[in-house]
Amino acid sequence: MEHSQRARIRAGDAAAFAELFDDHARAVYRYAVRSTGNWSAAEDIVSLTFLEAWRLRGKLRPDGDSLLPWLLGITTNVLRNTARSARRHQAALARIPPQDSVPDFADELVGRLQDAEQLAAAQRALATLRRGDREVFTLCVWSGLDYASAAEALGVPVGTVRSRLSRARTRLRALAQQELERGREPLPGSGQHSVGRVEASWSTEEEHR
């Protein structure tokens, strides 16, 4: 079925491509959310990923197992491109003289505050990693790809995936230990520690790999 779907997608079959979206859009979205820390931006990443996948359908290998590594490889490139665009945009904004503005309190009304705090804490921790290490960690730990699939997604050898993932885990564990030794203050009104919750989330997902 997968091989037939590959052939149909390569031939430009819209129905086969719709099946691809139905099968994997949620996984692409989860990867994008965890990479960007922004639910709205992740929706744009999903759209861009599938637009790019349609454009590149002729380059899809005719053989292989799951199509998810191919899609997540495209997502990774989209994330890189949007990150570069965002940096250029921020640099342009920084050159604009500041103006008086009225505070917007709408964000205080969100219903998933703890999820946002947890995601933000994860983003801060992941931001300390090299880009390659961060991408491997997100693909293997959060998106559930095995070493071979992550290697296919990123276009690197399996050994590179293994070494990057090991380096990322070592760095994140050291960071979590530093936070524990610092004696962190609880999040307001939650009675919990953000990094502790994120560390538990990583550990839980790793146990289920």
Rank of each mutant, 00 (worst) to 15 (best):
Y29Q: 14
R162Q: 12
L79A: 06
P98S: 10
P186E: 12
T138C: 12
Q192H: 12
S40L: 03
P103V: 12
A125N: 03
F105Q: 11
A200N: 14
R95F: 00
D44P: 11
T128Y: 00
V158D: 15
S143K: 09
S35D: 00
Q99A: 14
L165M: 12
F137K: 01
A32R: 07
L119K: 03
A92M: 05
R112T: 00
L129M: 06
D65C: 06
A42Y: 03
R26V: 10
H193M: 08
F50M: 01
E2S: 14
R61W: 01
L145K: 13
G144R: 11
D13N: 10
N81Y: 08
T36A: 06
T76R: 08
A151C: 09
E199F: 15
R61D: 09
A83Q: 12
D44T: 13
S201C: 11
R173G: 10
V158A: 11
D23W: 04
H3R: 13
Y31S: 07
T76D: 07
V161F: 10
P62V: 02
P69A: 13
A120C: 04
R80L: 08
L71V: 03
T160H: 10
R26F: 03
A125I: 08
S101A: 15
D63F: 06
P69W: 12
W70A: 12
R173Q: 15
L165V: 05
E108R: 10
A53W: 00
R80C: 00
E108S: 10
A94V: 04
Q114S: 10
S201I: 06
D22Q: 03
T76L: 01
A83L: 05
A176C: 09
L165A: 09
T160W: 09
S194P: 10
H193K: 01
A106T: 15
V78P: 07
W202R: 13
T82Y: 03
W142L: 15
G191H: 12
I74M: 02
L172I: 06
S143M: 05
S201N: 13
R55P: 03
A42G: 06
C140W: 11
R8W: 01
S143L: 06
R197Y: 09
A92Q: 07
R30K: 08
S40C: 01
A15C: 02
W70N: 09
E117A: 10
P157M: 04
V28I: 15
V198F: 15
R80A: 08
V28C: 07
T36E: 05
W202P: 01
N77A: 00
A42V: 03
R130A: 06
A92D: 09
L51Y: 00
T204P: 00
W202V: 12
D65V: 13
E181Y: 00
F105E: 14
A42M: 06
R184S: 14
S203C: 04
R167D: 12
S166M: 02
